[in-house]
Amino acid sequence: MPSDRILGLVALMTAVAFLAAATQIQTNFFSGEYLPKLFPIMIGAVAAIASLVIIFKPDPDPDWPRANTFAALGFAVIVLVGYAYALKPLGFLIPTAIAAGLLSYQISPRPGPAAMSGVGLSVGLFVLFKFILGLGLFAFPKGWIG
């Protein structure tokens, strides 16, 4: 019950914010006064109604994972965000090996196989992408190669 109420509340606030933003959409002579606003306002209205229904008729709660699993999920998100930032400046091999290894460890917590799958995936995928599919990836940071 509470999960769905929170979902409904968050969705309702987003819908209201979306509606407010929709009324502020800039228009000009080409688009006419109301056409760019009409559809966003309709979407916002439907979303608001759906959120209210969810708040007042919530479903039973799902099985939420325990706090430490949530921490693991949060850590996975951080790994992926870090990977997104690292991919360009640090080249493909090192960030991929680290990120894949960490994810593997999180799914099955055994350090040895996790490290192996990280390095294996990194090298294997690099060969696949670079030499078989011909994508323009860099193996190492550009500074290393000179």
Partner: peptide
């Protein structure tokens, strides 16, 4: 209600970007 909300999330995301008729950014 949840299906309708999901559709609205998608449609709302589709509205992001430059509007085709006015050439002005939305959302």
């Amino acid at each position: 209600a949840k299906a309708a909300l999901a559709a609205c999330i998608g449609l709302g995301i589709a509205m992001i970007g430059v509007d085709s008729s006015s050439g002005l950014p939305r959302m």
